[in-house]
Each structure stands twice: as C-alpha cells, then as structure tokens.
Nucleic acid binder design. Sequence first.
DNA 1: TGTTAAACACTAACCGTTAGTGTTACGTTC
DNA 2: GAACGTAACACTAACGGTTAGTGTTTAACA
Lengths: 193, 193
Amino acid sequence: MPPGRRERKKAATRQKIADAALRLFLERGYEAVGIRDVAAEADVAVTTLFAHFASKEALVFEQDEDFEQRLAQAVTGRAPHAPLIPALRREMHALVRHCTADGAAPIWRMIDASSALREYEESMRLRHAEALAAAIAADLDLALTTTACRTIAKFVVDAHSLAREAADPQAAVDEIFRMIEAAWEVASPARRA
Amino acid sequence: MPPGRRERKKAATRQKIADAALRLFLERGYEAVGIRDVAAEADVAVTTLFAHFASKEALVFEQDEDFEQRLAQAVTGRAPHAPLIPALRREMHALVRHCTADGAAPIWRMIDASSALREYEESMRLRHAEALAAAIAADLDLALTTTACRTIAKFVVDAHSLAREAADPQAAVDEIFRMIEAAWEVASPARRA
DNA sequence: TGTTAAACACTAACCGTTAGTGTTACGTTC
DNA sequence: GAACGTAACACTAACGGTTAGTGTTTAACA
C-alpha cells in the first residue's frame, strides 16, 4: 500500500515547515525567530505548525526518532550471539560522525548557543535511554537487573553528547566505550560468546 | 560579620515564596498553580518572585546548589590519598537517602508527575556533572583525559536519578557504583593507593 | 455519492517571563 | 545623624510559546 495523496501532502507540509524553520533559525538565530515568523514563512497557520511539531525546539531536532530507533535497532538487529556493546559502539560511531559532518556544523553551533535547545536535547536523551533500556532488557531476557539495563542504556546515550563535545569525537567514542564495556562486564554475571 | 537586617529580610522573602509555592503545588498540583497564584499567596509581586527564583521550576528545586556543592566537596574534601569513587559513592548514598526519606515522597511524586519538572531536573544534572567534572579534573591534575573526567562525572550524576527510581534505591547505588568503579579502573592508567 | 475523519485556518486567549519605571528601606559615609 | 547610593520590592504592560474553541476544506472509503 503506497502512501496516499493525503499522507504525501501531510509529509510535504511538515517538511515545508521544517525547512522554513531551519532557514530562518540559521539566518537570524534561534531566539530571534518567533513561531509566528516560522508559520508565516512556511505559509501555514500557527496551529498547523503545532499539529506537526510539539514545540519550537522540536523544529530543530526533527529526526530525533531516527536516533532512538537506530540505537534500538543496533541491539535487536545484530547478528545472533554478537556481543552487545561493540554493536552499540559501531552505531554510536555512525551517529556521531553524522552529527559532526561538515554540513551539520552550523546547526550544532546554533544548538550549543541556545540553552533552551540544549535542555531539550537533554530531555530527548531521557526518552532515548528509556527506549534503549527496554530494548536491552528484552534482548537479554532477564540476564540483567532492571537497574543494570537502565544504567548501561544511560551511559551509552551519554556517550553521544560527551563525544560530540570532545576535540576528537571519534576517538572519544572509543574511549568512552572502553569504560562502558568495563561497566558492562561487571554488571553481567553471565558470559557472552 | 553577621548578616544584616537587609540580608535577613531578603532570605525571609525567599523562604516565604518557596513555602507558599510548595504548599500550593502540593495542594493543587504543580501545573494547576500559576506564578501569579504563588506570588499572591506569598504576598509579593510577580517580579519579586522572579528576582529570587529564575523560573517556576526553580521553586521546586530550591536547594539544588547543595547537591552540586556536596558532590564537589566529596571530591575535594576527602582525606589525602583516599580513593575517589568510594568517596563519591558514600556521598551519593547520603543524597539518595535524603530524597527518598518519608517527608520527601510527596514532592518527588509531584516531580515525577510533571514533564516540565523532570526536564528541569535533567538540565540541572548537566550543570552538576560539569561542576563535578571540573572538581575531578582539578583533583587529579591531568592524570585523566578531559573526556574521561566528564564521562565519570556524568555517570556519577546519572546514578542519582537511576537509584531514585529503583525499587531499592540504596542497593541500586551500590550496584551502579560497582559499574562506575569498573569504568574508572579502565580510564585511569595510574594506580591509586 | 455520501459519510467520516483528518488536515488546516482563524481568533482569542493562557501562562511563564521580562522590560520599564518607580518607591521604599537598608547600609554607608561624611 | 544627615545625606547618598544601592538593593529589594511593587506595578503595569507587554512579549512569545502554546492551546482551546470553532469552522472549513479535502481525501479516503463505504
């Protein structure tokens, strides 16, 4: 079943809003642009904008569900008996590379410049950590305590912001994941292949 | 130099606002109470309220600077050559016990019920982690990389929220700190006493 | 074709927060 | 102890994100 015209129009409207927002934000700065400006630029009503995005900050972190799903996918979609932490490390490398790419630099500079955006990012990580903890718990099927699952998930999600702000992000991912691996070894009583 | 009347009055006003806020929040729920309600209950102007508290959420986390200072103190104030992680673990035990005490239960129930408060708490932890990372880096004097310091600090601060939500918070602190200790061993090349 | 639901628009407001402008009362200095 | 500077506080009015309420168009589907 191909997406109907309705869903295509909806997606188009969403994209039009996101594009307009990013353009204005990068032009004039995040704080200097109002919701009403974005709505006018995208030629939609303010209420329509909020039907597509839950908040002003969400306009910037448009594809954060990707992030959540890719982490969970790294857990559930890995080869059978493949070790967990290296799989997460590989995915984190990709995610960090993606957001430290040249084209993304202005966006992240904007995020770092706004406390509202940094706070929103942090609250996103909370969700991501919960989702990842659920994926890990389901995958390991009671081999770990709930607390251990949530702890490992939180550490992994933390790695993203820590690495992003490091001088050499890719090296930082490796450094942090060595620490996560050690924490993991202590937490998991069962031996893995 | 004893605090003059001026400072005492200022502190009294602050306390009067905080008390009024907490009373109303617990009575009617956080979201159901407006800033104007709190100001009226404390018999001050709205602008006065914001002169004492940076935001509505800050009314709830009145003594969060304690938290920050106690963690840093646990690092800088420990006995010479005393190991770092156990000192942090002891302090975290105390902090978690404090916020899981009987009297604090309604407050934390209120926090858990409000996404605005949970997000604010998360952004507080960011600050706390930065402060702790600075304290650790200063204490160890270049024995660790910046990334390792920040990573350990983040893990320690995470322990608070993770433990608070666990079924047995005190046991969770121990469990999480076993993992942190392992991460720490891997990060620190130098041997400690 | 007609029904239904979803997308979208518009107005008007709510609420946290701040700017602007005074006024009072304390601490300080002569 | 009188005068000055400053910090606390008050008041009004607004700004900006967000939502409620209401109605209109449009597409999916029977």
